[in-house]
Design a protein around this nucleic acid. Structure first.
Lengths: 260, 260
DNA sequence: GGGATGTTTCGATGCGTGTCGAAACATGCG
DNA sequence: CGCATGTTTCGACACGCATCGAAACATCCC
């Protein structure tokens, strides 16, 4: 019988440790030459080349030749998303008690994922937009901009009608891998983030992907979304998240169907 | 320095075709006994047991013993999410769908998933409710009923405040097998479907799980959601090919000795 | 108790594939 | 042109693991 867009074959490509390390090394979306990826994976150049060829054929990577170098990068955000989600599956919930570095903390709080806002701030802002009825989460991993939303965006100087939708639509749901919740991505997310910068709500760091919120930004975030600095900066009870309990709940739910 | 619990090991567990088939068979969140999963994967019971043990140890599955059966289910929504995203990568293979039997077509169009509405109709209605702003999709696989929604449900004779939420909440997002999109489940979904029956919008078949829409129902669906019979009955655009139609069908049939 | 069914453990077998050395190919530089 | 560097191809080897038969264990039903 014919196979489907095989989930197993895709997983098999990621399953090899060396390949996985290369993929993780490419998670930031930038392109790297084969030799560097070989070093990342801890294998020889020949082995790496074999792996890269398979990942390429499998549609996980894209390649660009430049001189005698060949630069590999992830084939797209969907690959990054799949990788990040895979990371959420673990044999045991490794308790991250180990204190994060200062930079890591900043990254967890707010950062740019490609060119849109991510991290705890990104998730909170997206949730705020949903709560206000500006966005509507549709089932194909997108957001829809409501008329309320269009008006609100216009109010801060963003004409939604002028933004050109990508093939994946105007606004995508992007899974945040530290927060494990969705945040606003897609062209709208990019433009929105850009506006926050030019309006001086946030400031992007030069070297890293982290983002800093200005005093003006905090005022605005509170006014528009009710986001308070104190609340957002607090360490979140990251351990024992909703997932485990949800799992048992789905069982409860199955049961409840029984008696009819 | 170990950041993630090895993305490779998680992928390796999914990489095996037999294991992948079992996982896909469990994507709906329900629990199934080991023997049925063995049949889904096309392997012997011994082999399946070995696989299930590994998936269990890897944290992808949870198990519950009941009598001489052992019911396996996905460990949580994060696993389902990872699997779904994994399916989004890989060479885009076009799978020509085998002609379905008349009964299978009816099932695909509209059916009851336990006691709530599923199939293409179920998905369309849910999408309608979302578009109208009656429901809000939240990130933990649930729906939230907006004030608009409460009013609308009241208008057709459903007092949302009187429905007792289950532990999984009032309204769940249930992944539809054939449509691969979410539809309304949970107590609200059950009550809503029940109302559609008593109000004569739809009629449930006695023997099968398929559902028929009455003329009155079509009028109402069009009025409330803009759902037209012609549009909905048309063959799907095929851009989302039915994944594992074989497995899904055999699953439906084998459901005869379901959990209790 | 005894037979039937569902599930797991153990041991042996065979295939797939990740690995590296050697060598070929490609490009840049003096 | 000759050498260095980056990358890929080829061939051989070895390890891992999926698979199944046989058998043990568990539970239900008569």
């Amino acid at each position: 019988m014919g196979s489907q867009p095989n989930i197993a074959s895709a997983a098999a490509l990621i399953a090899d440790p060396a390949r996985a390390m290369m993929l993780v090394a490419l998670l930031d979306g930038r392109a790297r030459p084969a030799g560097e990826l070989a070093y990342c994976a801890g294998v020889t150049a020949q082995t790496a080349s074999s792996h890269l060829g398979k990942l390429l054929a499998g549609g996980l990577l894209a390649v660009e030749t430049e001189g005698r170098h060949r630069y590999y990068r992830l084939a797209g955000p969907h690959v990054a998303l799949a990788l990040e989600n895979l990371a959420s599956i673990g044999p045991v919930e490794i308790v991250r008690r180990k204190a994060l570095t200062r930079e890591a903390q900043k990254l967890q709080f707010a950062r740019c994922c490609y060119d849109h806002l991510a991290g705890r701030l990104g998730v909170a802002v997206t949730k705020g937009l949903l709560d206000k009825g500006c966005l509507l989460a549709t089932d194909n991993k997108r957001f829809e901009v409501t008329s309320v939303g269009a008006e609100w965006f216009a109010g801060i100087g963003l004409d939604v009608a002028k933004i050109k939708p990508a093939r994946a639509g105007l606004a995508r749901q992007c899974l945040d891998w530290t927060e494990r919740q969705h945040h606003l991505a897609g062209p709208l997310g990019v433009q929105f983030t850009h506006l926050l910068c030019t309006e001086g709500w946030i400031r992007r760091e030069k070297a890293s992907r982290s983002v800093e919120v200005t005093p003006k930004g905090w005022r605005n975030f509170k006014e528009h979304f009710g986001i308070e600095e104190r609340v957002l900066m607090e360490p979140v009870p990251l351990d024992a998240p909703a997932q485990r309990s949800l799992a048992s709940q789905s069982l409860e739910n199955n049961r409840s169907h029984g008696p009819r």
